[in-house]
């Protein structure tokens, strides 16, 4: 595993993603969600919205890095909020 050059932040990042996937799976088995139409212009399931949220967050972080000098936690905060909105009403 040495060649993969793990660091604490990336470990936490991937652990977080893995935990999210597990949580989504459990949630779906316990109370299955249905596809529905929210403010996004297409019908989405929970998993779709999670993916859209994650992808949007990735682009959001890159945008902040490219255009501003803000510290990164601001971007993270905005993205978490956006994620919550997409999951709930998207």
């Amino acid at each position: 595993m040495g060649w993969m050059a793990w660091t604490l932040p990336t470990t936490l990042f991937f652990a977080g993603i893995a935990a999210l996937l597990v949580a989504m799976t459990v949630w779906q088995t316990v109370s299955p969600g249905r596809e529905r139409k929210g403010f996004l212009p297409l019908t989405t399931s929970r998993g779709d919205r999670l993916f859209i949220g994650l992808l949007a967050s990735a682009y959001g972080h890159l945008l902040v890095l490219a255009l501003t000098d803000w510290p990164l936690w601001i971007a993270t905060a905005i993205c978490v909020a956006a994620m919550a909105i997409i999951m709930k009403w998207g």
Binding site: G2, M4, A5, T7, T10, F13, F14, L65, A66, L72
Partner: peptide, 26 residues
């Protein structure tokens, strides 16, 4: 995963590396 790990470090080989955060992205 390896790509993500490498991208936050200044890395010459897996044993010589420093954490640089998001510097490379900037």
């Amino acid at each position: 995963m390896t790509v993500v790990n490498y991208s936050v470090q200044d890395i010459f080989d897996p044993s010589t590396r420093y954490f640089v955060g998001t510097e490379w992205y900037r």
